[in-house]
Amino acid sequence: MTQQRAPLPHDFHPEVPAFTVVSDALAPGAVLGAAQVYAEGNVSPQLRWEGFPAETKSFAVTCFDPDAPTGSGFWHWVLFDIPASVTELPAGAGSGSFAGLPEGAVHARNDYGSKDFGGAAPPAGDGPHRYVFTVYAVDSETLGPDSDASPAVVGFHLRFHALARASVIGEYEVPAAD
Rank of each mutant, 00 (worst) to 15 (best):
F64T: 00
G104A: 09
S85A: 14
G71K: 05
H129A: 02
A60G: 11
S140A: 15
G96F: 11
G104P: 07
R159Y: 08
S97N: 15
D116E: 15
S167F: 08
V154E: 05
T62D: 04
Y38S: 02
L101Y: 01
L26H: 02
G71F: 05
V106W: 04
A84W: 09
L47I: 06
D126F: 06
A177N: 10
V86G: 08
A30P: 03
L89P: 03
K57S: 08
G104H: 08
A105K: 03
P28T: 14
L79R: 12
A91H: 01
P151D: 04
A30S: 14
L101C: 13
V168T: 09
S95A: 10
A177I: 12
F19Y: 06
A54P: 03
R130E: 14
P28R: 10
D116M: 14
S85K: 14
F160D: 15
D81A: 08
A18W: 11
D11Y: 01
G119L: 01
L163K: 08
N110D: 13
R5P: 05
W49F: 00
R130M: 13
S140C: 11
D67F: 07
G155N: 13
D139M: 09
A6H: 07
V132K: 04
V31A: 13
Y136A: 08
S114Q: 15
N110E: 07
G127Q: 14
Y136S: 02
A105H: 02
N110L: 11
T62P: 00
A137E: 04
S140R: 15
F74N: 04
A34N: 08
A25Y: 13
F133G: 00
A99Y: 12
S150Q: 09
H157Q: 10
